[in-house]
Design a protein around this nucleic acid. Sequence first.
DNA 1: GCCGTTTTCGGCCCGACTGTTTTCAGTCG
Length: 586
Amino acid sequence: MDKEKVAEILTEIGTLLELKGENPFKTRAYSNAARTLEGLAEPLEKLVAEQRLGELKGFGEALVEKITTLVTTGKLPYYEELKASVPPGLVEMLRIPGLGPKKVKKMHDELGVDTVEKLEAACQAGQVAALDGFGEKTQAKILEGIQFSRTYASKHHLSQALVVAEPVLESLRGHPDVIRCSTAGSVRRFKEVIGDIDFLVSSKKPAAVIEFFTSQPGILNVSAKGETKASVILTGGIQADLRVVSDAEYPFALAYFTGSKEHNIVMRQRAIARGLRLNEYGLFKSTEETRDPKLLVPCKTEEDIFQTLDLPYIPPELREDHGEFTAGEKDELPRLIEWTDLRGSLHNHSNWSDGRDTLEAIAAHMAELGCDYWAITDHSRASFQANGLDPARLRQQLKAVATVNKTYADEGSDFRLLTGTEVDVLKERLDFDDDLLAELDVVVASLHVAGSDEADNTKRLIRAAENPFVHMIGHLTGRLLLERDAQKLNQHAVIDACAATGTWIELNANPYRFDMDWRLWQYAKGKGVKCVINCDAHRLEHAGFLRLGAGIARKGWLTKDDVINTLPLAKLKKELGKKRGTGGQP
DNA sequence: GCCGTTTTCGGCCCGACTGTTTTCAGTCG
C-alpha cells in the first residue's frame, strides 16, 4: 500500500474518531501523521522496512504499529472495525457547511439521522430545531448548506479562482478608502485547487469598503456582512471572504490569512519560543492574551515579522510547512523562478493534430508575446482521437515549420518554432521509431493510455526515459484535477530513471493538470532532474499558462536554473543535443 | 495519540462568528 492511500486512511480514522467524540488531540495526531506522510520525500515502504518510521515527528508507538500493518498487509483491523461502527452518511454530513462532529453526533444520537437525506427530512419536520443547543436558524442553515453542497462542488481550479479574484482585487485597489489590499489564503499560496478566495484590505473606513465589496458586479449572493468581514458567492459558485483591518494590523493579518494553517502553527510556536504571541492582530511582547499596542513589536510588512522570528522572507508559495523553516534558518531558501524567466514552451499543439491554430498564427502570436521559441509537438499516430500525425505527415510538418522559420529569419527576427512530437508511450515501444525522433528538435513522451497495473505503467515510462531521443516525460500521471485521479504509477521510480538518463520532466502548466505535482519537485531536484514548464497549448491563449506553471514551480521550490525553458535558444539547443550525444541505444 | 532544558503527566495554536444562550459550545479558517 502506498503512502497516499495510507495517508487517506489515517485522515479518515481521524474523522471517524471525531464523530465518535474522541479526544480532539488524539484525532489531530492522526491527521498530522497523514500530512507528514503526504509530504514524505522517500518511499514509505523503505521507511517501514528499515524501521525508521518512529523517527518522524508525531509518530509514536501506536501510529508506527498501525502504519506498518497497513503497508505490509494492506489491511488494518482497527480501521475496518472503526469504519463499520460509524454510518458512512455521517462523514458525508460533515461536508455540509456549519456542521461539525459534535452536531452531527448529537443529531445521530438523538434523532437517528445517519444520511444527508434523513437530515434534510428531519430539518423539514422541524425536529432539528427542537434539539437542545439547536434552533430555527441552525436548522435553516443546515438546509441551505445541503442545497449549496448539491449546487456547487466545494473545490475549484486555481485558474478559475484567479479569473474572478483579479478583477475584484483591481477594483478594491482603486477604492479611495483602501490603503493596502491583497488576496490571501490558498489563492495567494498558489494551491492547484482552492476552496474559497480570501481578500484582505487595510482601511480606516471598513464599513465603506465592505459595502463596496458586497456590491461588486458578479456577486451572486451575500452570505454574511459584518463590521470587519463579509462573505459572498462569486460567479461560478466560488465563495469569497473579505476581511478589513487597520493598516497597522495589515502585515499580521496578511501573514495569518495567507496560511497555511500548518505554517502558521509553526510561526506561533516560534513566537512563543521567543516569549512573544502572534495572532492576526499583531506580534506582542507577552505570553498572555493582549492587544495592548504598547506591547506590539512594530512590523510594517511581512518581512519584518519573519525577521523578528529570525527568518528570511518566506514567499507565500512555500508556506506549507514543507521544510521552509529548516531552510530559512540555514538561509538556504531558494531564489524562486519568476514567470518572466521563461522563454517559450516545449510542448504545444497546432491544427495539424488537435490544436486550434495554424503554425503561422502560433508563431506570430508567440513572437509578439516576446517568446524566443515555441515547440510544435503534435500528437503521434496512436492518438487517433486527437488526429495524431503519422511519420509522413510529421515529415511534411517539418517542412512547413522550416518555411515559417525562414520568414522570421528573413525579417531578422530571432524567434523560431521548434519541430517536435508528443510521442505516445505504447505498451511495448514508442509510437515512432528512433530514426524519426532523431530528426526532431524536441521529443516529449507521454503515456496517454495507461493500464491498471502500476508496475507495468512505471516500466513503460522508465523505458521511455531510457530512450536517448526522448527529451522529457509529459504530464507524468495523466491526472485531471477534480475530475480524474493520477494513473497508477510509481512516480519516484520514474523520477529516479529520469535522473539516471538525463531526461527532463514536464511541469504541465494546464491548470487542470499541473502535472507533475508540486510536492514531488523537491525530490526530483534533489536527484538533479530538470523541469520543463510547458503550456501543452491547444489555443493561442493557452500561452498564459506559463504564468500559472511558474507559480506551481515556485511551490515546488524551483529556481531559474532548475527549469530548462528559461534558457535562450542557443543554450537550449545545446541542452537538447546533450542526451543524444552521450546516450546509447536503450 | 504524542511529547519532554517545567520530561512519564498534563499539556497539545488561536481567535472570530454564530446561535444559543445570559456565559458558552460548536464551527471555521
